[in-house]
Design a protein around this nucleic acid. Structure first.
Length: 422
DNA sequence: TCTGGGGTCCTAGGACCC
DNA sequence: TCTGGGGTCCTAGGACCC
């Protein structure tokens, strides 16, 4: 059977590999990149995985291991990873115009037409060029559907004898690989679905492929029905060549230490609203609804408290000053004295393109004036660094700031942090 | 002492309307 | 004694992804 051919190209231990590109001394040693606030391990090199460090392990629990084995630890540096990701995708686009940038470290290519000859050799070319031009090592999975390309990629990553490329268009190999993949490892099957499937005696990807459609939908809803089709090589998840308009925009953070004062919380959400406004303007969107939340830790014996509100804005906006005003007033309404809050956030929804936003019949914002002011602020912050200009209280280094004690330099996006060749 | 952040999609259930 | 049914919209919550 022939048909569609998808490739999934995935950066190996992507964040760690980005760090290695700019510091060759990290080659061959265990490296870990931590989540925001230096909370958990979210990327590990094979050397770090071999030490037993798991995805999502809290940093304070692996600190002993890190010290004993000389693991190199980094705070996450999204400016660097985002820029490296863009370079990888520019390279990939030379191999197929049909590319879906699925996440910061994964892209699907549609290779259905135009590669002629040997798909595995073509995939090896892709890997070699990405490595040469960006320094990032990758693996490539080939399959007749996105779910199969995902499975192939995973197999290539965990089986070095495949030399970084696994092609599941071959039926014998496909049957063998799907029979060996636990159902929980199939793309789209999370812990809850996996439990349901196991309860029905379905434990492998091959077993899931072989159940009938009605049963699949019964156990897993319509989502599962599509996964089963894809496992059979029937492509029903199309490549998304243009990113759909964003539905929401969130800025949320864990604090470097608990927040117990309203004034401090108000400054924090003002900072979140400021960043959210920047993100809206980067995408040319305005928001119609703001949601706010804050909560205490669920990992200790502090009295639990979770407080939230939702504000419908009279007129959709991307104006930082308005957003900050709503955030400060909202947080005053939901504030509760006597609790130790460890996290809060601002979510903007009901997003529409700024040009398409309805205007109120009377009054309303002075859009032109607001746009000029925001453009000026964004320009200054682009040139001189984020938070050079920020609303009062929203930009200063404060006690609640998340920790980032191991951040590498923003080698590629800041002149003052460029790598230096000696 | 110390446990991430930012998304999407689907479903169930209530409100509302005719 | 006897109290509809079906459609739509909205929201909250759950599931998934990286």
């Amino acid at each position: 059977m022939t048909g569609r051919l998808f490739a999934l190209v995935d950066g190996n231990s992507f964040y760690c590999s980005c760090e290695r590109v700019f510091d060759p001394r990290l080659e061959g040693v265990p490296v870990v990149v931590l989540s925001n606030n230096d909370g958990c391990a979210i990327a590990r090199t094979t050397e770090a995985k071999a030490l037993g460090i798991k995805m999502g392990d809290p940093y304070f629990k692996i600190r002993g291991l890190v010290r004993r084995h000389g693991v190199r630890v980094f705070s996450s540096n999204y400016a660097l990873y985002g820029d490296m990701s863009a370079r990888v995708n520019e390279t990939l686009a030379r191999f197929s115009p049909e590319i879906e940038v699925y996440s910061i470290d994964e892209s699907f290519l549609d290779l259905s037409s135009g590669i002629g000859g040997d798909a595995v050799a073509y995939a090896q070319e892709i890997r070699a060029m990405v490595r040469r031009w960006t320094g990032i090592p990758t693996c490539v999975g080939l399959g007749r559907s996105k779910v199969l390309a995902k499975a192939a990629n995973r197999w290539a990553k965990t089986h070095p004898e495949f030399a970084g490329v696994c092609d599941l268009t071959d039926q014998a190999l496909r049957d063998c690989v799907l029979a060996a993949i636990p159902v929980a490892d199939v793309w789209g099957i999370g812990p809850a679905f996996a439990r349901r499937l196991m309860a029905h005696g379905i434990t492998t990807a091959a077993a899931l492929r072989d159940i009938d459609n009605r049963r699949a939908r019964q156990i897993l809803t319509v989502v599962g029905g599509r996964i089963v089709q894809e496992l059979r090589g029937v492509s029903c998840l199309p490549l998304e060549l243009v990113a759909p308009t964003q539905q929401g925009c969130a800025v949320t953070r864990s604090f470097g230490r608990p927040v117990t004062e309203l004034s401090e919380m108000a400054d924090a959400v003002a900072a979140f609203a400021t960043r959210a406004g920047e993100k809206l303007r980067e995408h040319g969107l305005v928001a119609g609804v703001m949601q706010l939340f804050m909560h205490t830790s669920r990992f200790n014996d502090d009295p639990p408290c979770s407080s939230a509100t939702s504000v419908r804005l009279l007129e959709a906006t991307d104006d930082t000053l308005e957003l900050v005003g709503h955030a400060r007033r909202g947080v005053e309404r939901i504030w509760r004295d006597g609790y130790r809050f460890v996290k809060a956030g601002v979510l903007l929804t009901d997003l529409v393109p700024a040009a398409a936003a309805p205007r109120p019949l009377f009054g309303g914002r002075d859009r032109a004036r607001s746009a000029r002011l925001m453009a000026a602020i964004d320009d200054i912050n682009r040139r001189f660094g984020r938070d050079t200009v920020a609303p009062a209280g929203a930009g200063l280094a404060c006690g609640w700031r998340p920790r980032a004690e191991h951040r590498s330099r923003r080698y590629t996006t800041r002149f003052d942090e460029l790598p230096i060749a000696l």
